[in-house]
């Protein structure tokens, strides 16, 4: 029972990080139909930001907390730059966007190698996050994972509030649902695109901060996790944020359970097989937008 619960918890915390990444991807994909292959490198940027801040601020706890908004801003700014310099010019050409952002992804990885060196680096976790918290009986949960879960819950809540209740959130949703109509309603769509890219990429930066608590920081860390995030977006139903939430957790739990019972590679294979089978059955994803309107 304890094993099941603790596996479930591990899965949920993996799912939480996946969710942050997938939400960012879903935002930019839903908004502009852009598959951003460099999204993983924004995660890496967030992680290295944490690393840099820790060498500037010695207190690991303070530097971690500072890293959250800074990583959001750094990754967000990189996203805006990418959108402004390249993606904006390629909106009607999805395949070219795929190639170009992949190129940018490789470029950023090399840049990280040049600045920080090829070997992985590590941050020190603050004292409080290294222990475990006893939940009930024998059941304990690692503090770092609890922290990540809290961070993700906060970020998702903030995103939801921003999208649902603010006027710029309303504008983002309007552009997603009907770009032309938004433009003729007086919404400056190009500026909204940039804002969306900022938020989506910024979420990847926060995911990067979370990942520093789980493992080493390296130039290819983004690539390793981005595939899973793409799967979450596709399986969750493109442009469907709630779908992404559910699928992220299911995928996280599935992977960590199979991994517990077998090995990491078997778990990966099992998850891929499950997804391929699922998409054969429901190619549109688990959740789809239903409406009377044709628009």
């Amino acid at each position: 029972m304890t094993v099941v619960a603790s596996q479930l918890f591990t899965g949920i915390s993996i799912g939480a990080v996946l969710l942050l990444i997938a939400l960012g991807l879903a935002l930019t994909f839903g908004q502009m139909g852009v598959i951003n292959m460099a999204h993983g490198e924004f995660i890496m940027a967030g992680a290295y930001t944490t690393f840099v801040l820790q060498s500037a601020i010695t207190d690991a706890g303070v530097s971690l907390l500072v890293a959250i908004p800074v990583a959001f801003a750094v990754a967000g700014a990189m996203g805006v730059l990418l959108e402004f310099l390249l993606i904006r010019r390629l909106y009607a050409r999805p395949l070219d966007t795929l190639l170009v952002t992949w190129g940018v992804s490789l470029l950023l990885q090399q840049l990280a190698r040049d600045i920080f060196g090829a070997p992985n680096v590590q941050t020190r976790a603050p004292e409080v996050l290294t222990g475990n918290t006893r939940i009930a009986g024998d059941l304990t949960m690692a503090n770092n994972r609890l922290f990540i879960l809290g961070l993700v819950v906060l970020a998702v809540a903030a995103l939801t509030v921003a999208l649902r209740l603010t006027s710029f959130g309303r504008r983002i949703r309007a552009v997603v649902q009907n770009r032309d109509l938004a433009a003729v309603s007086g919404v400056p769509t190009a500026r909204i695109d940039r804002l969306t890219f900022f938020i989506g990429s910024g979420l990847a930066g926060i995911a990067g901060v979370a990942l520093t608590l789980l493992g080493p920081i390296g130039p290819t860390m983004g690539t390793n996790i981005i595939i899973d995030a793409f799967l979450v977006v596709v399986v969750g139903g493109i442009g469907h944020l709630r779908g992404s939430v559910i699928v992220a957790f299911v995928l996280g739990v599935l992977q960590s359970s199979v991994e517990y019972l077998t090995t990491l590679s078997v778990a990966k294979v099992a998850v891929f097989v499950a997804i391929v089978a699922f998409l054969q059955w429901r190619p549109q994803g688990a959740f789809t937008l239903r409406t009377r309107s044709l628009a």
């Binding site: 309303r170 949703r173 309007a174 649902q177 009907n178 032309d180 109509l181 938004a182 433009a183 003729v184 309603s185 007086g186 919404v187 400056p188 769509t189 190009a190 937008l289 409406t291 009377r292 309107s293 044709l294 628009a295």
Partner: peptide, 23 residues
């Protein structure tokens, strides 16, 4: 761009009763 034309005093109702369906 379209949004500036709107600001300048033009408005447009497209065909097919378009709306933002989920708002």
């Amino acid at each position: 761009p379209a949004h500036q034309r709107v600001a300048a005093g033009m408005a447009y109702v497209p065909q097919g009763q378009q709306c933002f369906p989920h708002l």
